[in-house]
Design a protein around this nucleic acid. Structure first.
Lengths: 340, 340
DNA sequence: AGGTGTCACGAAAACGTTTTAGTGTTGAGA
DNA sequence: TCTCAACACTAAAACGTTTTCGTGACACCT
């Protein structure tokens, strides 16, 4: 077990000073060619690599960024992480992943432990709990300390910082329009509780699309799901009490579960009933029939967020004011809707 | 923007020495009650938190562990990461996630950048590329440097280190047995290329189970899929050329795609044809019909791996030799197989 | 008065690096 | 012979901690 070698040991072995070794390693012009060669050869032989912790302390930057997400067991989030990781690595940064598990407390703890030197900046998507509590003091704190923060997907208007979002209202508008164009007119909506901004915005798009198409809004066709456990029950109730020819789910799970129920009740899909989901995950792709969805381009979102953060880290001319980038969505037509 | 305060500044403000502040913060008995109170009050007021990088440098430990996985967009891996994160946090460690993207080169680069002080130990699942190349020098190197390494799921016999695996052969044996007990006798297998140890082991279990049940092996019923792109085609060919009453897929995707094909060809599931998958992901849960699967307990695997690594980090009495933990699997009976 | 102990604190080293500010030697120019 | 510059190198500070080893002041005992 040969331990890692340090600059100091190289200096001692070669009988030169520490500074000479350091400079030789960076090909400084102050050092003679002979010495440079000698030092670098020795360093290579003993597989010398500078200690990153020491460098971080010296440079006051770690080349690490933290991403705090509510859950990792979600296809959309894994896409985002892949995007973040890809872009960050490309720009020479490492990614530390923290999970808040949708808990406010864990989000705060994560930020506090990370903020003490471990990382140069934050990438954050708010937990449900935080959105519900509307307590953002931990975000203000890190921003005040001068640490850059970029929020993505689940953001808040109360915090001024860079953001990357998708235009949920428009995406949902397009999805509903797609259904209408394909001949549907009584469209049910399965959405989340209102404190989730995405649920709210997507509902907004639904309402607007109906309005613009001259279709009257029927509140009975809107199902709000607070917890995933009550999803099944609420979907069944919808089928029991209402008549409709299409369902739009604000995520792929809602759409797939509804489609399943339609299946069980003998509806022909998409002839008698159409389905559109949100976020193109594995469920949509392999559902039966395959599900038409709004694609959120999570990978691109991750890349963009990482890029914005790193740009801010490297151009410390923080005169530039905060930006909000909107990632475009698109609709992927599959088997669960009638072709237009 | 108030910058983070350091011990040195506290010392200057309060007109005491740096060491006094440091000791006061840790309630040292050397320091008078008065001074302790004064220092701690001041520290709290200015929200002092020790700089973790400085601590890491001093203590020669970072309380960070790296986990290198081939892909994050896989339910099983996200479960593992959740487990790792959960256990690591519980024990006071942070998790740095690196993606190898199934590439040998990226795996090597990840390990090299991490090994220079950033982390205290590695958690690793080998990339396909590495398994194919059988080049493990990067693993030997970190082990030689005295840095603990725990491998999970995709491991190699050529490396001596702690491991956490699932008993793939037995799990697959049990799955086949389940099918046989439920009345199936011509069971097709959809598996991966041989260099993937999991594919090999699961095939092994398949073969053994048939043998023990006195069913003759028919090579034509075994489909090997090299790349996911050729999956559809190979499955169709299987249905075109062979007759069978059950399919076992070595992952959930294979099983679901096969089930879908059966659906399209009008087979009644499970009466005419049964299906079992591997790894309990979202696909299995929401497939139509829902898929009976081998549950791998990824969360537990992650927890176990993290625990083994951290135990080794904290008990530097490395006299204890390497262990291999086997995570039990279980079969979750759903709609795609006949009840036994 | 001299010796001994305790208390409360401070100085300095150490972790591994980079960088600034010297420093000694050599050679050239006046 | 003196001065100056160039060269090749070194010493030391700095990043923010913790910890070891002092040390001065005071009280107590003989």
């Amino acid at each position: 077990m040969k331990k890692k070698i340090t600059i100091k040991e190289i200096a001692r072995e070669l009988d030169v000073s520490i500074s000479t070794v350091s400079k030789a390693m960076s090909n400084s012009s102050e050092i003679s060619k002979d010495t440079i060669e000698k030092v670098q050869a020795f360093a290579k032989l003993y597989n010398y690599k500078p200690n990153n912790i020491a460098l971080s302390l010296k440079n006051k930057k770690t080349k690490n960024i933290a991403v705090i997400i509510p859950e990792i067991v979600h296809h959309f989030f894994t896409l985002i992480i892949s995007g973040i990781e890809h872009k960050a690595n490309e720009l020479g940064y490492n990614v530390i992943v923290c999970l808040s598990n949708e808990s406010f407390d864990k989000e705060v703890i994560n930020m506090e432990t990370m903020a003490n030197g471990q990382i140069d900046g934050f990438l954050l998507s708010l937990s449900k709990d935080t959105l519900f509590k509307k307590d953002f003091h931990h975000l203000r704190e890190v921003i005040n300390q001068g640490m850059p923060l970029v929020m993505f997907d689940r953001t808040s208007d109360e915090i001024y910082c860079d953001k990357v979002i998708i235009d949920d209202a428009r995406a949902s508008y397009n999805a509903i329009q797609h259904l209408i164009y394909s001949g549907c007119s009584r469209i049910a909506l399965i959405t989340t509780a209102d404190y989730m901004s995405i649920g709210k915005l997507r509902t907004q798009g639904y309402v607007n699309a109906l309005y613009d198409a001259g279709i009257e809004l029927d509140e009975n066709l809107i199902v709000k799901v607070d917890k995933d456990e009550e999803l099944d029950e609420k979907v069944k109730k919808l089928f029991d009490t209402e008549k409709f020819d299409a369902v739009f789910g604000v995520n792929e799970l809602y759409a797939v579960v509804a489609m399943r129920e339609a299946h069980n009740r003998g509806f022909k899909i998409p002839q008698e009933m159409s389905f559109v989901g949100f976020s193109d995950g594995i469920l949509s792709k392999y559902a039966y029939p395959t599900l038409t969805t709004v694609i959120q381009h999570g990978f691109e979102m991750g890349e963009k967020a990482a890029q914005m953060l790193i740009e801010r880290l490297e151009n410390n001319d923080d005169d530039s004011s905060y930006k909000t980038e909107v990632i475009k969505t698109s609709i992927l037509q599959r088997e669960s809707t009638k072709p237009i």
